Amino acid sequence: MINTQQSIGVFDSGYGGLTVFKSIVNKLPDYNYIYLGDNGRAPYGDRSFDTIYQYTLECVEWLFAQNCPLVILACNTASAKALRSIQQNILPNKYPGYRVLGVIRPTAEIVGDFTKSNVVGVMGTRGTVNSESYLMEIDHFFPNVKVVQQSCPMWVPLIENNEHLEPGADYFVKEYVAELLAKDAHIDCIILACTHYPLLIPKIKEFLPNGIDLLGQDDIVADSLVSYLERHPEIAGQLGKAAIRAFYTSGDPRAFDASASIFFGETVNSNRVDLKL
């Protein structure tokens, strides 16, 4: 066991979850955290359902083994394709008392507060879009809201190569935004359904008409976690508050640290972990 104090685990297939982690730390700075990026097997977006589920479960179980009774899947693909099965099939039988939360439901719960036209756009990876998870979750909370989706396969590579704010990114940002808006002229709110995408917000706004709200998930998920811990003191009471933050990756720590600092906004020093359980 790497950490002996109970921590909040934060997981992503790569770097994007660090935008959520950064916001969580800003709002809940006293808690202990372990961040795990499965960079050695990223990206998850185009992998099969079964593969994503298996990889996500391995990462969740690794975090459980590091004394994390609460794990946040700060990854839309993992939340779409693995969260429900883990919550319903794994936790009750194998890990009673442990909790795993995702990023899709917190976003779906509040999107109705941002749309007046009742037409919402969703921009995400192919895996997230094809899962139709946002259509189902938003319909659950706001059945009168129409959801229009657009996959953006080039955005994550642009961000991970630190080219997202360069002029060369303009073509792909403009193209995907235009394709989404062409599907319905009444879209007045767009969900950025990938935790990488907050880094693209300045560029996306250049190509958005006035009057369209742009929702990143970083603050939404962090606010949802604050509320969750207030409503579940039995979970919050288990967690250490020594402000310990540890970073792990299944890839090359040096490469992870170089890119992670862009997403997290601070210097990151990670350790490599073998996820084969």
Rank of each mutant, 00 (worst) to 15 (best):
N162Q: 14
A178Y: 11
K116T: 12
A182D: 12
H186L: 10
N89A: 03
N144R: 12
V122P: 04
H164G: 01
F142H: 10
I86T: 02
E160V: 05
V129T: 07
D170H: 14
P153I: 04
V122R: 05
P157D: 13
M123H: 06
V156P: 11
N162G: 11
F141I: 07
F172L: 07
Y98Q: 00
G127C: 04
S117F: 00
F142K: 02
Y98F: 00
T115P: 03
A169T: 02
G121I: 06
V177D: 08
E166N: 12
S117N: 05
D113I: 02
V122M: 02
G102I: 01
G121D: 06
N161V: 13
A178R: 12
I90F: 10
M154N: 15
P106C: 00
C152Y: 14
E109N: 04
I190A: 08
G121W: 06
H186A: 15
V103I: 07
M154A: 15
I159P: 09
R126K: 03
Y171P: 12
S85E: 07
E163R: 15
P167G: 02
G168Y: 12
S131P: 01
R99K: 13
N118C: 02
E109R: 03
D139K: 12
A178C: 09
D170M: 14
D184R: 13
T128I: 08
E175A: 10
V100Y: 00
V111T: 06
P157G: 14
I159G: 12
D184W: 15
L180E: 06
V103S: 04
K174F: 11
I86A: 01
F142I: 01
M136W: 11
E160Y: 09
V120F: 02
D139W: 10
F114V: 06
E109G: 04
G124D: 02
I104V: 07
H186Y: 10
F141S: 09
E137S: 12
V119Y: 02
Y95D: 09
V129Y: 13
G124N: 06
R99Y: 10
N161F: 15
S85Q: 01
M123P: 05
N118R: 07
H140W: 13
V177C: 00
S133K: 03
F172S: 13
A182Y: 14
S151Q: 02
P92A: 02
N89M: 05
E166A: 10
W155Y: 15
F114D: 05
D184S: 15
P92R: 00
L91F: 03
I104D: 03
S151M: 00
E179P: 05
